[in-house]
């Protein structure tokens, strides 16, 4: 058991973070909190990626005459791209939240649903 935890702790952390993030995305009513959850969720995946790129005893993958073993750099590159995507997604989400705030006067999901149900008519502009 201990071995499992020690041997796979990177996965466990990634899973735990992912669950936390996922929970926030689904269960939180505040839209900003949902986005925070989304970021945690994505970060968990990034951590997972980076951890699988680690080679035991490897150094940073910069060509250097003293190093014999390098970490795998590819996951880092992939994750760089994924981070860009994540940032863009977050930016779009924030832009949406701002406009939702303007249109509904709230960023609490349950209140938005209530407003919609009560049929306050009219477009946002």
């Amino acid at each position: 058991m201990v071995e499992l935890i020690l041997g796979k702790f990177n996965y466990l952390i990634a899973i735990a973070l992912a669950m936390i993030g996922f929970y926030a995305m689904i269960a939180k009513s505040n839209l900003i909190k949902k986005i925070i959850g989304m970021n945690i969720f994505q970060t968990a995946v990034f951590l997972f990626y980076i951890s699988i790129g680690k080679v035991h005893g490897g150094t940073a993958p910069i060509v250097w005459d003293k190093a014999v073993l390098y970490d795998n750099p590819l996951p880092h590159v992939l994750i760089l791209t994924a981070i860009v995507v994540s940032v863009s997604t977050t930016a779009v989400a924030f832009a949406l939240i701002i406009r939702i705030q303007k249109a509904f006067g709230t960023i609490e999901e349950d209140k938005i649903i209530e407003i919609k149900r009560n049929g306050y008519k009219g477009d946002m502009e």
Binding site: L31, A93, I97, I100, A103, F104, K116, D123, M124
Partner: peptide
Amino acid sequence: KREALTASF
């Protein structure tokens, strides 16, 4: 439409 915002979100 403002519903579009929540749909998109």
